[in-house]
């Protein structure tokens, strides 16, 4: 359990006022529920539903395999583990950031099966068999991906918390629309927020990356010239 989960646990326990808290306490005492299938602690089990065998995972950990940036990774997770937390806490892939953890900021943006999604809002167990790409997949050794290079050249990052997500959102945008219109740009990165206010640089970065991706790798420049 991550520290944040503990924090939320306390918050909910301390909150004796709300109806949801009441029902949760009742629930914890085990008074509220009568499921058709008895719950037992432990990995996987099979239940019969509509005549078929259906696997039930959890609540304890089960082993899953995730394809992260091209390589398969085995990891044991509880069903509640998000893909973001699993990558960050168990698989040493910390590029995607956890900021809101509620699908409202984009810092955790990664590309799954070619589409940008919020990693904080995908269950790890549901990401099996899918192609997961994080910001770590972009640079080849010291050579930055044109989108990363464009962020650098346009000084499109300050504190950097939103940046890995923005870079992935921009990459997904340019994969889909190599020469994006202004509207496509705005729609393409409309799921990412930056507190430091780097949007001006990001707009420039998208233009540069779009040009560079068509021409081949961009040149590195020293950061002394004007943003214009």
């Amino acid at each position: 359990m991550s520290s944040s989960d503990e924090r939320h646990d306390h918050a909910a326990d301390a909150n004796t006022s709300g109806e949801s808290a009441v029902s949760r306490r009742k629930f914890l005492k085990g008074t509220g529920v009568a499921l058709t299938i008895p719950l037992v602690a432990g990995g996987e089990k099979i239940v019969k539903a509509a005549g078929a065998d259906v696997k039930i995972y959890g609540p304890n950990k089960t082993e899953i395999t995730l394809t992260v940036n091209g390589s398969p990774k085995k990891v044991s997770v509880e069903p509640r583990a998000t893909l973001l937390d699993t990558l960050r806490n168990d698989l040493d892939t910390t590029g995607a950031k956890r900021v809101c953890d509620r699908a409202t900021c984009g810092a955790c943006t990664m590309i799954i099966d070619g589409k940008p999604v919020y990693g904080c809002t995908v269950l790890a167990i549901e990401a099996q068999g899918r192609k997961i790409e994080t910001v770590e997949s972009l640079a080849k050794g010291d050579a930055l991906h044109p989108v990363q290079q464009a962020f650098w050249d346009n000084d499109a990052q300050q504190c950097g918390f939103c940046t890995p997500g923005f870079v992935m959102a921009c990459k997904a945008l340019l994969d889909k629309h190599p020469s994006p219109t202004e509207e496509q740009i705005e729609m393409g990165v409309g799921g990412n927020l930056c507190r430091c206010g780097t949007y001006h640089g990001i707009k420039g970065a998208i233009a540069q990356a779009s040009a560079a991706l068509k021409k081949g790798p961009a040149k590195m420049t020293r950061g002394g010239k004007s943003n214009g």
Partner: peptide
């Protein structure tokens, strides 16, 4: 998040059997 058990049925018939009869379960 409170932990839960997780099922991934492949038909709608299975799905509704796996669902509880009370909201919240």
């Amino acid at each position: 998040m409170q932990n839960f058990e997780y099922a991934s049925p492949t038909t709608k018939e299975q799905a509704v059997e796996l669902l509880g009869k009370q909201w919240g379960e």
